[in-house]
Design a protein around this nucleic acid. Structure first.
Lengths: 181, 181
DNA sequence: AGCAACTGGTTTTGATTCGAAACTTGGTTT
DNA sequence: AAACCAAGTTTCGAATCAAAACCAGTTGCT
């Protein structure tokens, strides 16, 4: 027993829901971006983002609770609280940049104001990319969803096309989504 | 006049708000993931995601409206509607994967069920990465936010540390956020 | 010491959104 | 025709969001 329930939900086992639990809420990413931009204090976030006080308070508490920001009293002015990115928070940079780049690509062609550059040559960074284990850049066409127990399996090619029905097949043809673009 | 208002809001000019306008809503990313996983129909999303019907209807309409999915009647069964990723929608793959990987890294160590592999060797993909224009992988320490008119400027090094105050400086020290992790 | 101003909240009160369940409309199966 | 199915829409109560007022330590000023 227990096999019958949640039939398609097998597909759901990935980190996305957990990521969205925190970052899926309305202002979380904007606060994160402000944090990357060097803002640390409540009133700074408030005036930068134009968010309501109570919501900001709530979001900051949640981000702290989830270990994305850390909250510590300011040494020199004990009214102030410093909110700073933790390592866990900083690790959201690729996700934030990928979103930002996507928004930039498809949004109103307004030029982004603080441009991210490589400190080495001060040239704008390239696109956030999906890399293979050996560093090759992968596109949608290069990818497959496979069941964990099938990793590394050499396929004889025939199952490549037999992937329409989810939940039973070993492999899901991601390229199918691309063909229709 | 016009210089005084929106003092810090200069920082806000990037694609993130536009990306969040669509993808920031509660179920958008989960629907997108289901779409990448090969689901195309209303009832499929419904049973896969466990979302309310009216919300799903609303989200799908918004995703279509924003050109992330396209909605077309099914040829063989005219009751059915096919929702398919557009190119614009497919371009969200790096953002979705970055989020997923982050959630995976910090979530409950549950193994992800459909693992993304490189079709070439069937090995799991690497982390979504920020690349320099020449393909080097960049980390937080390698990055600077600079004003658009300062791109490519060779700095004499002294301004590297003088970056605490936003809005006036030419450059924002992203590494400052890292030091505290 | 006394008082205004500042920082980071909390409370209160409406507006919006979410969610479950029932209902509708057109298409298909038998 | 009757039953059924896919994709919605409607209705209504619950949760969330937002604007504004209020509150409590801290600080600066005199």
């Amino acid at each position: 027993m227990g096999e019958i329930r949640e039939p398609l939900r097998e597909l759901t086992e990935c980190g996305l829901p957990q990521a969205l639990e925190v970052m899926g809420e309305r202002w979380s990413f904007m606060i994160l971006r402000a944090s990357f931009n060097g803002l640390h204090h409540f009133e700074e976030f408030l005036s930068e983002l134009g968010i309501a006080r109570n919501i900001l308070s709530n979001r900051l508490a949640k981000l702290v609770e989830h270990g994305i920001l850390k909250r510590e009293p300011c040494a020199d002015d004990r009214r102030k609280i410093e909110y700073r990115l933790t390592e866990k928070g900083s690790d959201l940079l690729p996700a934030m940049l990928a979103l930002r780049q996507w928004g930039q690509k498809y949004g109103s062609g307004a030029p982004e104001n603080p441009v991210l550059v490589d400190e080495r040559d001060r040239l704008p960074i390239g696109p956030v990319s999906i890399l293979a284990h050996d560093g090759r850049i992968l596109t949608l066409r290069d990818l497959w969803f496979v069941r964990p127990d099938k990793i590394g399996l050499r396929s004889d090619g025939t199952q490549a096309e037999a992937s329409a029905g989810l939940g039973r097949g070993d492999v899901i043809d991601l390229a199918a989504a691309k063909k229709t673009g």
